[in-house]
Design a protein around this nucleic acid. Structure first.
Ligand code: FES
Ligand code: FES
Lengths: 164, 164
DNA sequence: AAAATAATGGATATTTTTGTCCGCTATTTG
DNA sequence: CAAATAGCGGACAAAAATATCCATTATTTT
């Protein structure tokens, strides 16, 4: 079976280069939020440049994503010297990953059909519906129960990394 | 919280339109395989046109995907009159979804990091690694244990649908 | 008030993915 | 062997996602 997969590797001339669970924008958004949260725990604001360096993301693109998170009231942004991005106490204690994902990728991840049919639909399920449902629910539950704060605490302890 | 999400809906001016677990190519590939398998169970070959209609996909694009599956030896293709696509007995009984996904999307879905770091890595895990791992493993197990045949049998029974 | 700083918003560019077109090859039928 | 059929392969086109540029706005410091 591993041989089979290796064989496919060579033959795969067509199709996507990368396929990930979240969009790049969302990945940057989550990583940035965790970094901002970590610094906010120490009452520090961070500039766009700092964020982009910390999470190893393109600066200008990251700017767009932070704007989106700011508009969604998940993070604060302040202009001018001493300005930058931060997360206030309330958000620090309450923001779940699901909010960031919703703010950037929308709720397709929850409502979408595994096989791309127009919305997941119990009444006319696609062939993969049953098998997919529980996985999607696990993912949803995970995103809805995981706080950004808990992730930033692990980061601070040096247990996890935002870039390599 | 529901109000929060609805609020985001409006504010969401930036970012991806659709974010799905598999690429479109892979979705078409899986749906096509299930359809071809269903017909092959009745010893019928199907043309590209039939497949595209059955799964409601763009014909020319579907052609590319079927070529890929054919090169990967998952389905057979025959030229000329009476030609078309089919799945032989062996494949019919042995093809798992994971093989189709590997053939089209590659194995990024198994190896990739949830937050987009260069490959998932136990030694230097991203902040979401632990939470993500079990979900990814569930997904992997599901794909590796689900046969195309079983899905096509449910389809034949009218329990599931390839288009709406 | 002027200068410096940092985010913002809009336009634009690049890359990737998705989708199309069309002449070619192989196969079957008559 | 000619005609019809059906997939193949390469080039091309459109759409979406990702990424960049730069002038502007808001804020702070001097
Ligand atoms: S209908 Fe496809 S996942 Fe529910
Ligand atoms: S390192 Fe990110 S998922 Fe394993």
């Amino acid at each position: 079976m591993d041989i089979f997969v290796r064989y496919l590797e060579k033959v795969r001339t067509f199709a996507p280069e990368k396929v990930e669970m979240f969009s790049k924008a969302c990945e940057y958004g989550i990583r940035a939020s965790i970094y901002i949260a970590e610094k906010s725990l120490l009452d520090k604001r961070v500039s766009l440049k700092e964020v982009a360096q910390a999470i190893n993301s393109p600066e200008a693109y990251t700017s767009k994503i932070l704007q989106q998170l700011s508009r969604s009231a998940i993070i604060n942004s302040d202009k001018g010297p001493t300005g930058g991005f931060s997360m206030d106490k309330y958000m620090l204690n309450n923001v779940k990953l699901s909010m960031i994902v919703s703010a950037i990728d929308g709720d397709e991840i929850y409502k979408g059909c595994a096989l791309g049919l127009e919305k997941c639909n119990e009444k006319m399920p696609c062939p993969l519906h049953d098998q997919f449902k529980s996985i999607r629910e696990d993912l949803k539950r995970m995103l809805e129960t995981t706080t950004v704060k808990s992730l930033s605490l692990n980061l601070e302890k040096g247990l996890t990394f935002l870039k390599r």
